[in-house]
Design a protein around this nucleic acid. Sequence first.
DNA 1: TATTGTTATACTCTATAACTATA
DNA 2: TATAGTTATAGAGTATAACAATA
Lengths: 172, 172
Amino acid sequence: MCPARSKFPAPKTLSRRPRDSGDRTSDTIDHAALEHLLGFAIARADVHIRAAFQASIGDPFQLRPAEFSLLMLLLTNKAATQARLSEALAMSAPNLTTLVDRLVVRGLVERVRSEQDRRAQQLCLTTAGLDLASRAHALSTTMEDASLSGLCPAERAMLLELLHRVGTPRPV
Amino acid sequence: MCPARSKFPAPKTLSRRPRDSGDRTSDTIDHAALEHLLGFAIARADVHIRAAFQASIGDPFQLRPAEFSLLMLLLTNKAATQARLSEALAMSAPNLTTLVDRLVVRGLVERVRSEQDRRAQQLCLTTAGLDLASRAHALSTTMEDASLSGLCPAERAMLLELLHRVGTPRPV
DNA sequence: TATTGTTATACTCTATAACTATA
DNA sequence: TATAGTTATAGAGTATAACAATA
């Protein structure tokens, strides 16, 4: 829910017809030359996952994906520093600054100068921020259920595990 | 490799420490409140997959992800219409227009008015476009190997299959 | 010198309204 | 009246340089 993303256009629906000649001018598009790519599969799945987030959290709480991710990290990482959050969110420091600015204006987050290092800004959830983050987190546990309805619990766990291994190369 | 994407910031690396109290001000960020989300797992994996694309195809061929995806679709869908490509790429018609403009300027693609429907523009690869698309496709078959080195062939196939099922809800 | 955070800016991707020409 | 494509424009996400304050 959090790293900086790119833009791989993906189809909403796929034609899964058996392979034919290849030279066609039909009414459906054949994705043969893309289906072997994980990037393509990710892009397609992402369309649905994003829509689920938008409906369950984005619209109701007026939270962007990165804003939601930051609040989630603050739930378990009190007074985390912007530098470390920037790394954890794979977001540049300047872009994190403007994101935090928005949350501060809304009264959800506060910046506190670190005692140990006067350069660092520690981020803390306000009472309102903690309340909103808690409610958003509760909703997040089920928001993807519709998108994952085609998968049994074991498959769902397997998918998360496999993606995690792609996300962390060289598990050693 | 093709649908319009969003922006879920994702961490480059994950801390996987055993759960502790939760209230910490340590040197690593705990992602506990995000790890259950497919959107988060996708965002993380996507960082690596995008980097692989950029290195293997994006930089060498000066192709953006959406441009690459369009060329791949034209390999197996000759004279496809912009309307159908727009749908297949999950890209709005205006945005597809500017994308096609760039490829036309580079001499990779040509627009041909449909005989049956004078409103429609059919896209065709030029000789140069076919050559470039063919070489890009050849490279695409291995570009994700490094990112997927932690998965055996069966796991890789499983990952693609599971993602496909998320990408196409209600397989009936 | 190096690091933390900020400001400013530019570039890309995405989304929408308004228009044309065809159907 | 509806569809295919275009133009124009605005928004959101991302990336980088330059700077101040602190280490």
